[in-house]
């Protein structure tokens, strides 16, 4: 039988992590379904488990000098209770649309990032928030921009001895976030495509900073630098007209059971326009 560790401190957890190949478990909402699926076809996982849910201090959203620090045990519901500013509206919208209430109450944002599914709803939002991840090992900590952390389809730069301990989000004053998710039913649905964005306006009501990202349209969710540049200096009222097909050239959507690639490409554009059109004017 495989071992189950549930340490009560981060140091202990990191020591276990350093010593053995363990499956890290937080909310379990990704890892347990994956185990169920394997077991059903006669391939039950035998890896030891490191349950980090009892480690104190990791389930807080803190305000720092430069922004926010979201502990790795913060759940989707926890995020919604944190009283975050409009910058986080997109991420909070995602938190309301992930799975159902049960999954929102247990699943963590950090787990969503480590799973690194192309359809992870947290990912485009945190890309648009220019988030960084804080990785800890027994040897120390390192901080990576989220875009560098995500290295491919369900692949990350997380080392075998590391834990993701927090997500850092820099301040962007006066900014507004937004999120559009497209699925084939209302609840409990994995996104066919999704768009997330953050915009900040200058004194004249023109876009000073725009950061936009699309999910489920490539192996890893992506920012759209060309579109972001094109939006700079544009008023919100005009913003929805800016996104064009060429802005999505860097994407590589696929055909799968949920949708065709051609549809995803087109729908992504619609979602981006809708997202911009729906941004509240301050």
């Amino acid at each position: 039988m495989s071992a189950y560790h549930r340490p009560a401190s981060l140091d202990q957890a990191l020591a276990i992590r350093a010593g053995a190949d363990v499956a890290v478990l937080a909310g379990g909402t990704d890892i347990i379904p994956a185990r169920t699926a394997r077991a059903a076809w006669g391939d039950p996982p035998r890896q030891d488990v490191l349950d980090i849910s009892a480690i104190p201090g990791l389930n807080r959203v803190e305000t720092t000098e430069t922004g926010w620090r979201i502990g790795c045990l913060v759940t989707w519901s926890g995020l919604l209770r944190a009283g975050l500013p409009p910058l986080f509206d997109g991420l909070c919208q995602a938190a309301r649309e992930v799975g159902g209430a049960q999954v929102q109450n247990r699943g963590t944002l950090a787990g969503n990032l480590v799973t690194a599914s192309p359809a992870g709803d947290g990912i485009p939002n945190l890309l648009a928030l220019a988030a960084k991840v804080e990785l800890a090992s027994a040897e120390g900590r390192r901080i990576l921009p989220l875009a560098h952390f995500l290295t491919g389809y369900r692949a990350t730069a997380l080392r075998r001895d590391e834990l993701l301990v927090a997500v850092q989000v820099p301040r962007l004053d006066g900014a507004q976030g937004g999120f559009r998710k497209l699925g084939a039913r209302r609840y409990l649905v994995i996104s066919i495509a999704m768009a997330a964005g953050v915009v900040a306006l200058d004194g004249q009501g023109r876009i000073r900073t725009a950061r936009l990202a699309l999910g489920a349209c490539s192996a890893v969710a992506q920012r759209l630098p060309a579109l972001e540049a094109a939006l700079r200096g544009v008023t919100l009222a005009e913003a929805a007209q800016v996104p064009q097909a060429a802005h999505l050239d860097g994407l590589a959507p696929i055909d799968d059971i949920r949708a065709s690639a051609a549809y995803r490409r087109d729908a992504a554009l619609v979602l981006l326009r809708d997202l911009l059109a729906g941004m509240p004017t301050p």
């Binding site: 379904p33 519901s77 049960q102 999954v103 109450n105």
Partner: peptide, 25 residues
């Protein structure tokens, strides 16, 4: 697998799928 919610219980007053909660938790 968290998909049907038939196993929903309250944990510390909040609904959760009991099938996704390791008993240790």
């Amino acid at each position: 697998a968290g998909d049907c919610g038939a196993c929903t219980v309250l944990i510390d007053g909040a609904q959760a799928c009991a099938c996704l909660v390791p008993s240790a938790q």
